[in-house]
Design a protein around this nucleic acid. Structure first.
Length: 289
DNA sequence: AATGAGCGG
């Protein structure tokens, strides 16, 4: 089989590039009208004749019956739509593939490099839900879904009682001068954070944190959950994993929704034999900052 | 023996 390459054949990438020397740009743009529902198409174009005068050429064609029959009514209808974009000056019917250089702007929830525009949103992320991209916000401080991030949490400052805490006079929580009981106070017993009240205040009880040590190597989080679940609802289980080896480091944490449940678990499971090892179960110290 | 990843707007 022999393939013939006509000498004058342009590759598609070169289209419209070789005739930059002619004066066609002075001519009115080519117009394509139709085809209409009955397949009639008019092409009006202009050329310079040999004498250098402008010549108007009107071509009227009718789409072959066969081709027309294969088009859906909708497709035929679409053909009469006015052209837009780069296609405005194109006889689209003659070129099945359009190479467009039109800029397509992708819509994003937030364009890169822009700052959150509070003036438009009113600072309320909820107001943006549903009209931009999906917004999924879960506050890590109070566990509420949907209206704020951790840093905006109204309880952000309460969660970690500190010397700089001013809303409420601190008492037993801090190493206050004037003498305090030096015993360790479970975070849930400390002041500062409002108690769970009503249905709205779903505090994520990161605070009722129980440390479990002396876990066997192959104890995983599901095992821990299974072990502690009977004492009450567990909000989180965690087994420390060595990032390098992927193996358990032999300790973990269990958070309970209710302090009392945590306490019962500690009392029951501390010293409990599990996988040939004696578990140590006690209140966890607050996580390192 | 040992006190945890991930984190955005």
């Amino acid at each position: 089989m022999v393939r013939e390459e006509p000498a004058n054949k342009m590759r598609w990438g070169e289209l419209d590039e070789d005739d930059s020397e002619d004066l066609d740009f002075l001519l009115p743009p080519k117009q394509v009208i139709g085809p209409d529902a009955s397949g009639i198409k008019k092409v009006i174009e202009y050329k310079f004749g040999d004498d250098g005068n402008k010549v108007k050429i009107t071509t009227t064609t009718r789409i072959r019956k066969l081709a027309n029959a294969r088009l859906s009514k909708r497709a035929v209808e679409r053909r009469s739509w006015p052209k837009f974009g780069d296609a405005v000056h194109e006889d689209v019917g003659s070129r099945l593939t359009m190479v467009s250089t039109e800029e397509i702007l992708l819509e994003r929830p937030r364009a890169p490099g822009t700052k959150a525009d509070d003036s438009k949103s009113g600072g309320d992320p909820l107001a943006q839900m549903g009209k931009g991209g999906a917004v999924l916000m879960v506050c890590r401080t109070c566990g509420k879904k949907g209206d704020h991030w951790t840093s905006r949490c109204p309880y952000k400052d309460l969660a970690q009682p500190s010397d700089t805490f001013v809303d409420k006079p601190s008492t037993e929580t801090n190493a206050a001068p004037g003498g305090t009981k030096g015993a360790y106070v479970p975070p849930s017993m400390r002041g500062g954070v409002p108690e769970r009240s009503g249905t709205d205040m779903r505090r994520r009880n990161e605070e009722n944190s129980v440390r479990v040590t002396n876990l066997s190597e192959d104890t995983r989080e599901p095992d821990l959950l299974e072990l502690f679940r009977p004492f009450g609802s567990v909000s989180r289980v965690y087994v420390a994993i060595d990032q390098k080896t992927g193996t358990s480091r032999g300790f973990g944490f269990v958070n309970f929704v209710n302090r009392e449940d945590a306490e019962r678990a500690i009392n029951k499971l501390n010293g409990y034999g599990y996988d040939n090892l004696i578990l140590r179960v006690e209140w966890a110290a607050p996580r390192a900052t």
